[in-house]
Nucleic acid binder design. Structure first.
Lengths: 175, 175
DNA sequence: GGTGAAAGGTCATTAAG
DNA sequence: CTTAATGACCTTTCACC
């Protein structure tokens, strides 16, 4: 499995991220390669799972869920994670769940309409027999919103070893 | 500010999320509305910030960063958050940073190529004078990958008050 | 490289708040 | 009266063969 991405992949991803509505032809022009190349790269990136999809990015805050919190859960027994995950899956305000190392068992990212509403969401979470304890941390400010582009730029495995680490989000000197 | 989303918005978002490559015309057909309506809704959703963009979703694991961790940072002084955020912003492996309540000051989501590589990333983070302590939690398994669609389905503010709360991910009885 | 088919823009009309 | 939806026109651009 060759995996990873080379420089063209990286440039393509960043181009698509910057201007998502441009088509394959336009990409080819800006990258200075044949359109077939772009299409082949895109297909490969998607089949390899690098590009999961092009779904619209929704901002929970813009639809009324302005409060974000991280909840660490302790589960009654070491097993039973899946059952709890199924329970959490039924709660729309639960955006993400990981099993984790450390004192907790599960880490959840949740949202709510307000701090008062947060209580309701948490009650919905902890109202489940297998959950022993919940520790909630409220996210006050999003200092760095979720991003992957700098990582994509730094992940290039086609060119030089990877001095790209030096230029987190640097311009790729396109055309 | 009317904000929120109504049922058509919600259906549109979920349609686009399911099949991102379909165009405006196709959306109009499937939703049973005019093309201009879809276009107007899309424009409004984007200008309101509900839809942040259509950028490609990248899977960090697929480009070699299979290890995810959450790092809680304590900062020397209560202020100086911004300076630390700027420092963290320069590290590509830092995907997300929030200021938080509780004992810590900042919560970061980071990725690395391996557990050994995680050490390198953490060293890069804590090698900054204002950071007093770092507590790292490794994400073992992604029980629920990041999702917002159930929330979008539950957030409808156009129909009934919001008994949608009752049906977390319920079918919206589309056509 | 050609061709059928969309996208995107504008507009007048109509309906509903 | 303001806001939104509709169907129609148009030109440009793309995707597929």
């Amino acid at each position: 499995m060759p995996s990873e991405v080379d420089e063209l992949d990286s440039r393509l991803i960043r181009l698509l991220a910057t201007e998502p509505r441009i088509g394959v032809l336009e990409c080819a022009r800006r990258l200075g390669v044949a359109r077939g190349t772009v299409q082949a790269r895109l297909d490969k990136l998607q089949s390899r799972g690098v590009i999961r999809g092009f779904g619209p990015e929704i901002d929970p805050a813009a639809i009324g869920f302005g409060v974000t919190a991280f909840v660490t859960l302790e589960i009654r027994q070491s097993r039973g994670h899946d059952a709890v995950a199924r329970h959490l899956g039924g709660i729309p305000e639960v955006l993400e769940v990981h099993t984790i190392t450390g004192s907790g068992d599960l880490l959840c990212r949740i949202v709510a309409r307000s701090n008062a509403d947060l209580q309701r969401v948490i009650d919905g979470i902890v109202g489940y027999h297998a959950i022993v304890r919940a520790s909630t941390i409220i996210a006050l400010e999003e200092q760095i919103p979720y991003r992957v582009l700098p990582l994509v730029a730094a992940a290039i495995h086609g060119g030089r070893p990877d001095r790209s680490r030096d230029t987190p989000d640097g311009p790729t000197a396109v055309s």
